[in-house]
């Protein structure tokens, strides 16, 4: 009997750990789905995972992404769940300052609170890395406080709303397209950098790094109307376009770091939702 006691104790100790582990894996899945990895990892210079420093060249200047590893000083190691909720849902940093919308809180505001807590739980397990944060290179008039005005004009914290007539699959797809922040590149912006939601996902001329971003509405000539749902799902998993070409540039990063990590039911849900949008 005695020799079973240590094993029982071990099992007792391991029990809650395993439950935590499941939650952390869920958080990791959400971090992938929300597309955090590509911008917060400096792949080009082999930077540590999620340690930031990646240059994001935009029409408004060059931004350098922050470190979101668990490092207490350089990363987010000291953040509480509330800090995460405020950052993602309201675009406000723990010190109360406003984030530039290059951090897509305009989309993340629709993340569910429980999902944010899971993401936070995972991020606290990411190997801490030390990085020197570089200052953004912006024109003089784009200072942080200015963002309060920008947000007053163009941003409102929003809860994700399911479409009552949509299937569970459709609504899951809508949620994933929102948190994957597809629209941040695929929807054109006005001169102040706010998304023109009347032209949702019709493509944009000037994305990150001055790329042309294609129309992904179901229009048969301008968009992806000729793609089957299966084509779309396979594309999100592999980057294969229906004509045999393979996607490159920042969408290849999205496939590598985000969508190829999602399960096929979720990719299919995204395809169902995208195919249901108005063709433009």
């Amino acid at each position: 009997m005695c020799r079973w006691i240590p094993i029982l104790l071990l099992l007792l100790a391991a029990g809650p750990l395993r439950a935590d582990d499941v939650l952390i894996r869920k958080g990791e899945y959400l971090v992938r789905a929300a597309g955090c990895v590509s911008c917060h990892t400096d792949h080009e210079n082999d930077g540590p995972f999620l340690a930031g420093g990646r240059a994001l060249v935009t029409p408004f200047g060059t931004f350098y992404s922050p470190n979101i590893t668990s490092h207490p000083q350089h990363g987010i190691g000291r953040w509480s769940d509330d800090d995460f909720l405020r950052a993602l849902r309201d675009g406000v940093a723990p010190d109360g300052s406003h984030y530039y919308p290059v951090f897509p809180y305009t989309s993340y505001t629709q993340l569910k609170d429980d999902d944010i807590r899971l993401m936070a739980a995972y991020l606290r397990t990411v190997r801490p890395a030390v990085t020197d944060v570089r200052e953004h290179e912006l024109p003089w008039y784009l200072f942080r406080r200015m963002m309060a005005v920008w947000k007053w004009l163009f941003f409102e914290p929003t809860e994700f709303a399911e479409m009552p007539t949509g299937s569970a699959e459709h609504n899951r797809g809508a949620y994933l397209v929102v948190i994957g922040h597809c629209s941040e590149c695929h929807t054109p912006r006005n001169r102040f950098g706010a998304l023109d939601v009347t032209r949702y996902l019709v493509g944009a001329r000037s994305g990150i790094g001055d790329e042309l971003v294609p129309n992904i509405t179901p229009d048969r000539s301008a968009g992806i109307g000729k793609w089957s749902k299966d084509d779309l799902t396979y594309f999100l998993a592999t980057g294969a376009l229906p004509d045999g070409d393979y996607v490159g540039s920042s969408m290849a990063e999205v496939i590598d770091d985000s969508t190829s990590h999602l399960n096929s039911a979720d990719l299919q849900a995204m395809a169902v939702y995208l195919k249901s949008l108005p063709a433009m």
Binding site: L212, T238, D245, V247, G248, S249, A252
Partner: peptide, 20 residues
């Protein structure tokens, strides 16, 4: 086949800039 695709994507990601 996925590995082949990954090879294509790997090059296109860093070395190609689509202009249309």
């Amino acid at each position: 086949f996925r590995r082949v695709g990954k090879g294509c994507r790997g090059c296109h990601e860093d070395f190609r800039q689509k202009d249309e």
